[in-house]
Design a binder for these strands. Sequence first.
DNA 1: TCTAGCTCTGTTTTT
DNA 2: CAGAGCTAGA
Length: 754
Amino acid sequence: MLTEDLNQPQREAVMYNEGPSLIIAGAGSGKTRVLTCKVAYLLHLGLAPHQILALTFTNKAAREMRERVALMVDAEQAKRLAMGTFHSVFARILRTEANLVGLKSDYTIYDTADSKNLIKSIVKEMSLDEKIYKANLVLSRISSAKNNFIVANLYAGSEHIKQDFLMQIPRVKDIYSTYVKRCMSANAVDFDDILLLTTQLFKEHPEVLEKYQNRFQFILVDEYQDTNLVQFLLIKSLAEKNHKVCVVGDDAQSIYAFRGANIENILKFSKNYPEAKLFKLERNYRSSRNIVAAAGSLIAKNRRQIPKNIFSEKEEGDKIKILPAYSDVEEALIVSNKIGDLKNRFGYDWKDFAVLYRTNAQSRLIEDTLRKRNIPYVIYGGLSFYQRKEVKDVLAYIRLILNTDDEEAFKRIINYPTRGIGDTTISKLSSTANLHHVSLFEVASNALNYALPVNVGTAAKLKSFVTLINELKAFESTMSLYDFAREILLRSNIPQTLNEENTTESESARENIEELLNSIRLFEDMGKEEGREGIKLSDFMAEVALLTDMDLDKNVETSRVTLMTIHSAKGLEFKNVFVTGLEESLFPSIHAMENDTELEEERRLLYVAITRSEEHCFLSYAKSRYRNGSLQYPSRSRFVDDIDPRYLEFPMDRNISQSKSIDFSKRDENFFNSFSKPSLPKHLVRIGDNSKPTANNNTNLSVKEGMRIEHERFGIGTITRIDDTPDGTRIYVDFETSGSRVLLLKFTKFKIIS
DNA sequence: TCTAGCTCTGTTTTT
DNA sequence: CAGAGCTAGA
């Protein structure tokens, strides 16, 4: 029986399908299992796979669920489930119904970089100050409006515009409406549009909505706490007719408010469906009792939450260990050492470890250290493969060929490889195109008709570019995807250009492009295997646009330590988890320290991080860290103090101050002062600060072999050797955590301990 | 129009 | 620190 291995609340949640239900699923409570069983159960009850709509936030989650369903029912059925991310499912629907919202079905999906570039162009064209109307800021305003279902012509009457005035950016309204128009005339949508336009479509075309209401007999939504208003509306409208909808979420794990997610949706759900059944999954099967208790004590500091009692019946386990470090460098060393140590002691595999951080930038040091120790690792996040310059260049060719209206693709490649068409010509093209409400490509194709003010030479260059694109277009019908893509690549002249450069970068660029072609071939072959007829390159492009770094195959066969942001770690679990950078203004982020709402979200983020761990969890922080090129002295994160100390273990052996009361923020001096115990005479050696190094009077300073010193960045160590060289005195130090180093005395900041 | 080199600036999380 | 944008000179 399908529900055999489930506990009571899980089974009830799976078997109740008569109406709407809300499943509050605590961390590690077997949520995926419940969802999977539910899908299998619905199939068992006789629903056809295509009648079940299951929405997730990541492709990975969708894939995983499909695979697990396939194990319970037959693979054929699993394949036909309507399962995917919000964006991929609704992008498909939008493609089918494109003409109803003024798009063509081969529309392009703009990624964030495309959107930003478009905004930049618009700001320039409107002669606004780019320093005030920063692309990032404007995009986030537009995105937030879209997520809240505020279309361009309603923006003027919205709360948003009031905030814009306060922020002194009143013209966002105009940028927004121009942006929408430009996307439309480029036959392009951005990420938010995929959901927004579908919502609009359903609103304005009840007959279309009804078609999908009838098709989707049952709707499941994962990570419901992370849905925004538009997603809420989409689910609401689709479920309106037969109320067969089940949403699963955990308010304690809501970490996407910055993207418009609204916890209110969970509360609104019960309001919207008064008959909704509520199920709570409170037993955590993942983590030791200590970890669950520690996480529980942390999240208890948040005010707004749905009451629940998460418990574990696993063994008590070790306490969460706090790992203080002198510097970011040392933090990385400690983490790497601990990983090696645990592996040796308990026989873990590399893949049993994850190092999590708040910001992507933190990965660098950890990466460096792991590499030095020969510890294999994978990094998720950051630049994804499809965002790399060379890959985007090739994709832009493909995009323009498939959709010549694609403004951003046009701009990207009109002069790459260089063909003598510069900014001047591009802005002429732009203004002419805007004037006549046509695409850049259209103007370039008929420069004469539009009276484009360019000289004969430029006109000829434009013509040959247009001819190239048109010729390539003609190949589509005659070739396989792979051959077509290869033809595009060859004719684009990109490979030749890279060959000429002949640098390490151009070498890796060529490899990446080769990789891109391989993925096109793979896509084509898979399609054939699955018996899908008439796959087109546009299908590949549609898929690629919605792929993230998480979805890429990263050589999963080899066992490696995982490095990722906490956000990307949601939904995953590891035996051992290191949460790094627990420092004020990093975690919680400096941007989130102003109000409680944001602070609570950061706290939930740490909650998510801790609850990823099954057996061991470590929280590390550094007393000094390089950020944006300058050294900073943060204090320990307040969140460490939010956890009940009964579940924490602080180090005994090292005398890093536990108190947070010292203000490190002012000057270097404070940092050193904080080290010295007030009663002791200050042996602080601090030579070569910014004032000129008062040369040799430091050489006979009282350093001796065997002395123990405490270094700002490397921690505690013993001097093993002292050498006088023409450059000054060199000291050889064996550091406890960071190994041996040779330091030039006059530039070294340290304190003598004994 | 292109390129190299300089200055400036920003700097969270992501489908 | 790294990426973007700007300037000067070719």
